[in-house]
Nucleic acid binder design. Sequence first.
RNA 1: UGCGGUGUAGAGCAGUUUGGUAGCUCGUCGGGCUCAUAACCCGGAGGUCAUAGGUUCAAAUCCUGUCGCCGCAACCA
Length: 584
Amino acid sequence: MSENKTYFITTAIAYTSRKPHIGNNYEIVMTDAIARYQRMKGKDVFFLTGTDEHGQKIEDIAKENNIEPQIYVDKVASEIKDIADMLNCSYDKFIRTTEPYHKKTVQKIFKKLFEQGDIYKSEYEGKYCVPCESFWTDSQLVDGKCPDCARDVNSAKEEAYFLKLSAYQERLEQYWNENVDFVCPESRRNEMLNNFIKPGLKDLCVSRTSFKWGIPVDFDDKHIVYVWIDALSNYITALGYDPDVNSFSKSQKTLKDNDESELLKMQAGATRDPDINSFSKSQKTLKDNDESELLKMQAGATRDPDVNDFSKSDEHEADTTRYKKYWPADAHIIGKDILRFHTIYWPIILMALGEPLPKKVYGHPWLLFAESKMSKSTGNVLYADELVEKYGVDGTRYYLLASMPYAQDGNITLEYVTEIFNADLANTLGNLVNRTIAMSNKYFDGRVGDYTQTDINFDVDLKNLTLKTVTDFDKAITDFKLADACAVIINLTKNCNKYIDLTTPWILAKNEETRERLQQVLYNLSESIRFIGVLLQPIIPQTAKYILDVLKTDKRTLETLQAFGQLSGNVGTSEPLFVRIVEK
RNA sequence: UGCGGUGUAGAGCAGUUUGGUAGCUCGUCGGGCUCAUAACCCGGAGGUCAUAGGUUCAAAUCCUGUCGCCGCAACCA
């Protein structure tokens, strides 16, 4: 196990056009589970999330509501952050693209790329719908007409800046070839490769003049930096990257390993407290965004400076220390729809800047509502707060993590969530903890005694499975297969339940001669439950803490799972972890 | 049309890389147990593995064709 090594993981930044639904929230929960696990492995983790707040759409929404875009995005960004907190996500920093340091750095990046010739001024040509004032691509047109208003479109030109992707074609291909696991899942990698890279890259339009709500190109301010350079750059601006400071001055030709980041490894000592977030987060339910809120904002047209407490690391990156320490990213966790931007455009932007490339990008699938895309207009949608209210934070987290496939779209309905909640959390896990703790108290006043190794098959099998679960879990979560990771734990839990039936402790309790055996049985169970509790920490942190608290153990690290038999002392008493939900 | 998926018991899925008696969860039926949250444990029923051919001693698994469904196709942030 590597110690004191950094691990930088990010979600995509969420677009602040509206309150996100549970399908949007899946990403941060998954990322949180990985981040928490990496902390358990002793990594110095930096977990970044945030919001993307610019663009035409937001400008339009703000106009419709007759408020300033900034007021609008403040509100939505705050909702997004509240949801992240509610779901107990242990991010280290929440970046907003409207923050001054981000804007300033993006302008510097744009300028640098322009000055070195990677960005050039040209004309954007496309189909233009005059009434809608929008450009469309051929593939967007519906029967050759504007997809919005179904009217005819004309060819039109607009002055714009372009990024020379074509110049980096070879280097990008080389990186892809030398890092076969740069993009996962594999099916998505093939899709990118066949559809975009192999046919050859076309230069990318990186500015707009059709709207104002964005970061102006500082040397040509009728142009606004279009989404790619603005949004993608968050991953480095959040760390304090500054193109004027030579962070990685040397060549980035060979990026296949992380020698450089090793060099930049943090000095000893600055490890993060893994429990810093586990319980203190607010469980407040979120108010629905209703119109009165918007009206209120219009009335008080000024921003409340206190509302904007977004950065847990209060200081806004004034230097590049953090950048040097954490970049390149170990993992970008993003939706499958934006893989292209993260696996083609983003690496090229970084190459142009002379910076190292991220090590891994995972394009996760979508969470569908009853087989169809979540959409507010059709009512096919669920929100995090509805689920948390019914299933609790951990019930919600568990469903998301346990039921999402690795490469294919997942599904959610209240029926499915209830099914999983009852089966895995209430019946299998909750009941196991409850019955075991109850027996410990009933038969031994909570004393677990000491570990006694036996040759009894039941004991040996349970112990072996318990130890194997640790490595299986590690493998699954390292591959980002959270559903497998959950299944591995539940499998152990089921086997613990079976162990109880095989060893029949209630019969052992009847005879004084079998009292010692009874103690062994309960010990083995409690110790296996300790393993379960430790491994559940990244998945359902509150419940895991509760379990470990009930066991009254401080053996909560991965190191304590290297050998079976470390539990000692007394256990406490337990309330049911999850109460079965009976629909009616 | 190109590319990538996908079609397995009532529902949701695994298995296909490295062919060898079809598996898991939920539901259902029967049994057991009573420490426990009407939970837990065991067993049964239920599948021509989309379809048509082919290779093979042997195919859900490899090859070819067909049909259905989904995603992506360069700027939809």
